[in-house]
């Protein structure tokens, strides 16, 4: 039987899926044990027990200074930024993407501009954002929006423009106006693509978030990671990354 026709059943799929995780964990445990045997105060690969202790401190014990549970407070702060950034980016992308995908005039007007924007590396804009918008929440959310929106926009515009011309013509013969075509024909058909695209953009969005938090924040996953980096606290960093 050819390899291409070999399909794992349910149980095999779960085992196969878990395999890389197990390999990673094993490699870590072995590596950590070797290094610790060499030098008990090694900080690079702390033992799992040390990590568990730190998770307990960070997640389940209130911080002595503020009384917060740090891991959860950081996660909440980060997710809030991520959520609002993605929400704004999605709104912009839907509006501009639909517009440029449906209207040739809008495509001629905005197409080159959006293409230009999506070529600018967002991280290079970070200093500009900090200067213009200050060090607060706005600049971090703005970075996510700037990083994610142009790509989402272009993706949606392409999907909308790829709809067969016959469908648009058909909708016109069913008395649809431009607005109604966008609303009832194009929009429902690009929504699945929007969700896919958003899922793919989650990675870059996190990247921008961590980068922004690393430079300036008072809470957040990126802030904590880069804060404890100074003390080589790998036992905190690893759980945060995970």
């Amino acid at each position: 039987m050819r390899l291409i026709n070999l399909r794992p059943d349910r149980g095999a799929r779960i085992i196969l899926g878990a395999l890389p995780f197990v390999v990673l964990a094993l490699t870590y445990v072995v590596g950590s044990a070797l290094r610790l045997a060499d030098n008990p105060s090694d900080k690079l690969l702390p033992a799992l027990s040390a990590m568990a202790r730190m998770v307990e401190v960070m997640a389940f014990a209130p911080d002595q200074r503020t009384g917060d549970y740090l891991l959860w407070a950081d996660t909440a702060a980060s997710l809030k930024r991520l959520g609002s950034g993605l929400a704004i980016a999605t709104a912009i992308a839907l509006f501009v993407g639909l517009l440029t995908g449906v209207l040739p005039v809008a495509r001629a007007l905005l197409g080159p501009f959006v293409a230009f924007l999506s070529m600018v590396p967002p991280l290079a804009l970070l200093p500009v954002l900090f200067i213009v918008l200050g060090l607060g929440e706005v600049s971090k959310i703005a970075l996510i929006v700037i990083g994610v929106a142009p790509i989402l926009t272009r993706d949606l515009a392409l999907t909308a423009a790829d709809l067969p011309r016959e469908q648009i013509v058909k909708a016109e013969t069913l008395s649809a106006s431009t607005w109604l075509i966008a609303l009832r024909v194009v929009l429902p058909q690009i929504m699945p693509r929007l969700i896919d695209s958003l899922r793919l953009q989650l990675g870059p969005a996190f990247l921008f978030l961590i980068a922004a938090e690393a430079i300036s924040a008072e809470a957040g996953l990126g802030y904590r990671i880069f804060l404890v980096r100074r003390y080589l606290s790998m036992d905190i960093i690893f759980p945060y990354v995970a």
């Binding site: 016959e166 058909k170 013969t173 069913l174």
Partner: peptide, 14 residues
Amino acid sequence: GPDRGVVTQRYSVF
């Protein structure tokens, strides 16, 4: 417009 209906070989329904 709505006074002229059309059916094509493909892509004719939503």
